[in-house]
């Protein structure tokens, strides 16, 4: 019971992170119909920006954790958005109007490029940050086990929930959100109404990257270590989350993230930690086979 509760907490935390990354996949897919395989690496870049930021701030004697967090979050979001913009501009936009496969291959190339760039400049070894958000609240105690919500977990869940609310508002209630959805539904018609579609697509990439940046910073605080390869694994899991939730659907991405996070947490504690990725990818395969439109996605066929 206690263990299950603890795994629930861990799973929700992990799921929140996957969900944040999954939104980037789902939005980009929604608007230009491609899977941005470099998205996970954008998240990795953000984690490295976080490591550098925290280390620098510590070196300058900044000891206030909230201050350091806010500064690093802002810097990471800014830099990472520029990465998101640049990736689209350099690797995808020139291929628009080309075959469907071309930007996909370009995305894989971009992913390899980003991984290697970070590996070369930052080194291949695991990078740690000094522990900064330690401790937590014990909520349930038995003789042999204590259920604890770590402060870092609370932070992750709170920030994610806050971002989700803000983001849903942005997409459903603002003029930019409408333009973004219009581009998803009919790009030509959107341009005919005077909207700069290229700019909307760029902003979509930047927004996706910004959310991945927040996830990157959070994970750095949570685990305390990063390496150049984390983007690949997290990226594929977030992609699975997006597919599970229904690619193109924002609530779906979040739901998919939570489910994947929970499955991973429970699987690794009750079955086998080594095979937790097998669980995730089995889900990917099953969803693709039996419900390709995902849990909340809409079927491809539409009434005309």
């Amino acid at each position: 019971m206690a263990l299950a509760l603890q795994q629930l907490i861990n799973g929700l935390t992990l799921g929140a992170v996957y969900g944040l990354i999954a939104i980037g996949y789902t939005m980009v897919y929604g608007i230009i119909g491609m899977i941005n395989f470099a998205h996970g690496d954008i998240y990795m870049v953000s984690a490295f920006i976080a490591v550098t930021g925290f280390t620098l701030l510590a070196a300058f004697g900044v000891s206030s954790v909230p201050f350091a967090l806010v500064v690093v979050l802002i810097v990471a979001v800014l830099f990472t958005s520029v990465y998101g913009w640049a990736v689209e501009r350099l690797a995808y936009r020139p291929l628009r109007g080309s075959t469907r496969l071309a930007p996909l291959i370009s995305a894989i190339g971009m992913s390899i490029f980003l991984q290697n760039m970070v590996q070369l400049t930052q080194g291949a070894r695991v990078k740690p940050i000094p522990p900064m958000l330690t401790g937590g609240i014990d909520i349930y105690e038995t003789a042999e086990f204590t259920v604890r919500i770590a402060y870092s977990q609370m932070l992750i869940v709170l920030v994610t929930v806050g971002l989700m609310i803000a983001f849903s508002w942005l997409i459903t209630r603002t003029s930019f959100g409408r333009q973004q959805r219009a581009c998803e539904q009919d790009r030509t018609m959107t341009a005919l109404l005077g909207i700069n579609v290229d700019r909307t697509i760029s902003l979509t990439f930047m927004l996706g990257a910004a959310l991945a940046a927040v996830a990157g910073v959070m994970v750095t605080v949570y685990y305390g270590v990063v390496d150049f390869y984390i983007g690949f694994v997290a990226g594929i899991k977030a992609f699975t989350a997006a597919v599970l939730g229904g690619v193109g659907s924002l609530p779906g991405a979040m739901l998919g993230g939570l489910i994947i996070g929970l499955i991973e947490a429970f699987w690794s504690s009750y079955l086998s930690a080594e095979y937790k990725d097998v669980a995730t990818f089995s889900i990917l395969i099953l969803v693709l086979m039996f419900r390709p439109s995902g849990l909340l996605g809409r079927p491809e066929v539409e009434k005309v």
């Binding site: 003029s175 409408r178 333009q179 959805r181 219009a182 109404l193 005077g194």
Partner: peptide, 22 residues
Amino acid sequence: PEGRRIFPRMTVMENLLMGAVL
């Protein structure tokens, strides 16, 4: 345009607002 090309997954109001974007 030909075929109307309204935005099917937006409300009527949202479609009108899209027209007024500029």
